[in-house]
Amino acid sequence: MTFFFIFPIFHTLRLSFLDPNTGVFTFNNYFAFFSKDIFYDSFFRTLKLSFFVISFSVILAFPLAYFICFVVKKKFRTLALLILVAPFWTSFTIRAFSWQLILSDKGLVTWLINKLTGYEVKLNFLYTMNASIFGLTLFGVMLITLLLFNSMITIDKRLLEANSDLGGNKFTEIKNIILPLSLPGLIIGSVLTFIIAVGDYAVPTLLGGGFKPVLAQLMLSTIKGTFDLNTAATMAILLVIVIIIACIPLLSLIKQIRFEK
C-alpha cells in the first residue's frame, strides 16, 4: 500500500515542482497557476462549491438525524435510516445524470409546470453552479445523516430526561446535550463531504456543465487534452493541501478521543 499509495503522491509532488520543458526544479508551475484567471477562478470556485455543499448538508442532515434517532419509533428506525442511505450503493454518476432529465429546460419539471399552469417556463438551473451544489448536497445529506445518527444513537436517554426534569425545553436539549455529544459525527461527516465535494468530477460535469470548470474538471482536461503533466500535478497538489487543511478538525477530534480514554 505504501508503494501504490504514498509513492504516487510524492511522485506527483515532485512533478509539480518540475519545469515542463527543461525538467529542472522550479516554483513556476504554482506561480503560473495563480496568474492565469481560468485556474485561479476554478480554484476558488471549487472552494466555494464545497463550502455551500457542506453548509446545506449540515443544515438538512442535523434535523434528519434527530428525526430518525428521537422521533421515529424504535421499530422503524433502521428502516428509516436504510431508506435514506440505500442509494449509496448505486452509481453516483447515473443518479447525477437522471437529474438532467428532471431539471433540463425540456425536462420533467418544466413539462409539469406547463401542463399544470399552461406557462412555458425556463428553469435555467441545469449547467449552473447551483445545480452542482444541489447534486452534491443530496449526497452530503445522506453521508452526514448516517454519521450523525451513529453518534446520536449512543447518547444516553437519561440525559434527555434529566434535561426536562430540570425544566429545560427542546432548545436547551439540543443545545446542551445533543449538539455537543454528536459533534464527532458532525465533524467527520462534514470533512468527508468536503473531500468528496472538492474532488468530484462527475456531478460538476453533468449538472454544472463545462463552462465554469472546477479543479477536478480542469485537471482532467489538462491531462487528456494538453498532456501537461506538470500543471496537472500542481493542481493535484493544491487539492492535497486544501484537504490537509480540511482534516485539521479531524486531528483535534482524535486527540480528544485519546484523552477521554
Binding site: H11, T12, G199, A236
Partner: peptide, 23 residues
C-alpha cells in the same frame, strides 16, 4: 491504524491521477 484509513480522506481523482503519473 490511521495510515490504513487515509485513502478514505483522499479524493478518488487524486488516487487515480497520482497512480497514473507514478506508474
Amino acid at each position: 491504524n490511521l495510515f490504513f484509513l487515509t485513502p478514505l480522506v483522499v479524493p478518488l481523482i487524486l488516487i487515480g491521477i497520482s497512480l497514473r503519473f507514478f506508474l
